[in-house]
Structure formats: structure tokens, C-alpha cells
Design a protein around this nucleic acid. Structure first.
Lengths: 217, 217
DNA sequence: CTTGACTGGTAATGTACGTTACCTTACCAG
DNA sequence: CTGGTAAGGTAACGTACATTACCAGTCAAG
């Protein structure tokens, strides 16, 4: 596409990111269809020509925004740091990262805005899923498979279990935040949600006592 | 899909439901902002006056549609039939109903269309949540509390656990269906997802063997 | 049959928006 | 300093849409 190595004008790259930031605010709050290019330009000044020169059209801007948002938000899960720790600790850390990502304004906004456009932009929906929730589930499935190979657990379908685990972090708490019915959880609430989910995932409700610690085993 | 063309007396009620059915198809597929009143009228014939006489404006039609869809879809959870059965059986039955509801075209469509409009229609978002996912979680929390009172389980926060359970049915499988990346699950897939989720919820991954049956206890 | 209330169809109105044509400015080489 | 090139800005164009008006049928009752 553009291979302009030298920056002639005042930082073409900062212009692009400024547009994306403004677009995020408007798209994620109003939705794709209800967002006007004028509303985006109002936030950063300048002219609509900037957007059309950089992204081609409204679709191009939206797809670039969703793709980059999903990519950067979920990259935090790719880093390791899980070696040599117990499954309980690994799941707790994984859950903390996952919840923080899911509750971040960026991913909340992507959720809100991509839903009704998924049928209109099938390739974008697939890209978002693969980069985001799909990658999270795949990554966790690897972790579970490693634990199984070490003999810690005895799971048949690691991927199905990983899906269930990921789903526990998109529960009604997450839905309320997405719908704007409550603010994102405080650190204390988040930690409580993570420990609760990990406890149930590992030991089930039969195996947890009132303090949240595993009963047997 | 209008039932009878013989009756020139369309009995306001059947006209109302015909409008709502057509509106569901268009709103749920295109999204609120991208849907035009003309597109709805095209499906059932007649004049736009019908819609404006019955629902006032576009907002009124959308809110009526979302409210009634959530109400009817989730009403299946309100019926009882859980008395005198083991917790495992109750959760399996509850999960089956829940998954069927979540995968129904009606609720999938509500999901798709309400997300970006939640900030614009806060009271509608609250209404949808309370009638839908909130009620499911409340109902399950009651079931869990009854089981606790019978001494079957030992849970501190039944509502948090219920939220986690409900979340397991809005996992990546559900997300893929909402995003149009795959069709709703077959009955066999649905049953497998339910048994898997209930197994983890009750016994955790430490307590399930390869056949999906609980290991200890 | 006449009246009245309602429905269907067409079109008008006012507005908002995506996109583009055209002008204006800033930067660069020579 | 000058001419050329590309980006920035202004305004227009064409369209689509929510909403309303207007007129023509159509059924119910009197």
C-alpha cells in the first residue's frame, strides 16, 4: 500500500492514530451506522479529506479500527509467564488478564459496535473473533493441555473447557457493563470475580467451602 | 407470512403482530440505525401510517419489539418442573432451556441489535437485562439457594455462582453464532455443551474423568 | 345510500450524510 | 525565487430516510 519511509508532512502517523482515536470514541459510543464522518472530524479538526485519503471510506476506517483494537487489546494474553506455576496460579493470572481486557473501554466498544455489523462485514467478524475471543480460548486450551500432559488434570476436550472458562468472564457482569448499566468493576470486585470463577472451574460448586477454598483433594 | 388474506378486517392485533414480525426480521438483521421504515413495510405491504399509528415512531417500534422479544423468549425459564429432582438433573434441564433460548433467532437478534443502542436507550437496556439474562440468573440463584437449604451444596454467594453458570452458556459458541460465523448448534452439540458445562460447574475440571462423569464424591 | 372512521398508496418536506469536485495552502527541488 | 506536487479545506451533489399530508378506497353502522 503506502511505502512512504520519510515523513514529509507533520507526522503522517500521528494523524492516523489521531483519527483512529476519535473514530473509536464516536463509533464505540454511537455505533457504526449512526456515526457520521463529520462527528469524527469535529473531535480532531481538519477535513474529511484526511479520513478519505487515509482509509478510503467509512468501511475502511471501521475495519481498521476494529482490527487494530482487537489486536492490541488481546496481545496481553500472548505473553507467557506461566511456566513453572501451579494450574491454580496460572488460571488466576490468566483470568485477571482476561477480565481486565474484557472490561477495557476499547474491547467493550468493539463489542458494542461490531454486533449488528457482523452480518454486513463477515470477514471483519471472523478477524475480530480469531484475534480476540478465539485466541484467548486457544491460548487457554494450550495451557490446559500442558497441565493434562503433566498429569495434573484429566480432561478430554481441553478446548471445550477453555471455552467455558472464557465464557465465565463474559457473564452478566460483563453484559451489564457492555449495556452501560454499571461501571466496570473495581479491582476488588474484579479479583473476587476471578477467584470465584477459577474456584468453580477447578473444583466445582461441590468442592468449594464458604471461604472459597477447595474442600477436598 | 400473513395468515389470512380473506379478512379485510385485520383486527388491530394481528396487524400489530405482523408489523412486529417484519420489524424483527429487518431490525435483527440490519441493526436499528441501518433499518428503514420502508424496509419493514415492504415485507408486509400496507402503508407507513400503520406503523406510526400503532407505535408512534421508530423508537417506539424498536422498544416494543425488544421488550416483547425478551419477555416471550425468557418466559420458558419461569415455568417450574424442578421439584424433587437432583441438582444435577435440575441444572441439566435448566441449561438445556437456557441454551435453546440463547440460540433462538429471536434472542440472537435482540443481542445483535440492542448492543450499540444501549447507551441511547438506557431504560430499554435495563428492561432487556432484567427480563432476560437478569431473570435467568435470578431464577437459577433461587434453585441454588434451595439446594443449599437442603444441604446439597455449600455455597456462599449463590448469585455470583449463578452468573458464572449463565455465562458458560454465552461462551465462544454463542458468540460465533451471534457473529454469524457458524449456525446454531445441532441438538447433539447442544446436549454436549450442556453436559460439559454442568459437569464443570458441579465438580470442576479436577473432578471429571474422560467420560464426563464425576470422579469423586 | 350516506356518513364516518380507518387503511393503502403516493408523494412531499426537511434534514442528514457519504462522497467527491474544486480551490487553497504548504513543502520541496532547482 | 519559482514552479510543481500533494495534502488540507470548503462547499456542493446526490441520495436516503423519518415523518407528515393528501387523496382514494373500503367497511360498519345508521
Amino acid at each position: 500500500m503506502v511505502a512512504d519511509s520519510r515523513a514529509k508532512r507533520p507526522s503522517q502517523d500521528s494523524r492516523r492514530t489521531a483519527i483512529l482515536e476519535a473514530a473509536a470514541q464516536v463509533f464505540f459510543e454511537q455505533g457504526y451506522a449512526a456515526t457520521s464522518i463529520d462527528a469524527i472530524i469535529e473531535r480532531i479538526g481538519g477535513s474529511k479529506r484526511n479520513i478519505y485519503n487515509e482509509f478510503g471510506n467509512k468501511e475502511g476506517l471501521f475495519t481498521a479500527l476494529v482490527s487494530e483494537s482487537a489486536d492490541t487489546a488481546l496481545s496481553a494474553l500472548s505473553v507467557g509467564g506461566f511456566e513453572g506455576r501451579s494450574l491454580n496460579e496460572v488460571l488466576l493470572e490468566f483470568g485477571r488478564r482476561l477480565l481486565e481486557i474484557y472490561m477495557s473501554p476499547g474491547l467493550i466498544g468493539v463489542y458494542r459496535s461490531i454486533m449488528p455489523e457482523a452480518l454486513r462485514f463477515p470477514e471483519l467478524a471472523k478477524d475480530f473473533f480469531d484475534k480476540g475471543p478465539g485466541r484467548a480460548s486457544d491460548r487457554l486450551a494450550e495451557v490446559l493441555a500442558e497441565a493434562r500432559d503433566r498429569g495434573e488434570i484429566d480432561l478430554d476436550d481441553c478446548h471445550a473447557a477453555a471455552d467455558h472458562f472464557v465464557g465465565m468472564f463474559r457473564d452478566n457482569l460483563h453484559l451489564r457493563v457492555v449495556l452501560g448499566l454499571r461501571p466496570p468493576p473495581s479491582p476488588a470486585e474484579a479479583e473476587a470475580a476471578v477467584t470465584s470463577a477459577v474456584g468453580i472451574f477447578l473444583h466445582g460448586i461441590y468442592g468449594i467451602d464458604r471461604a472459597g477454598r477447595p474442600k477436598g483433594r
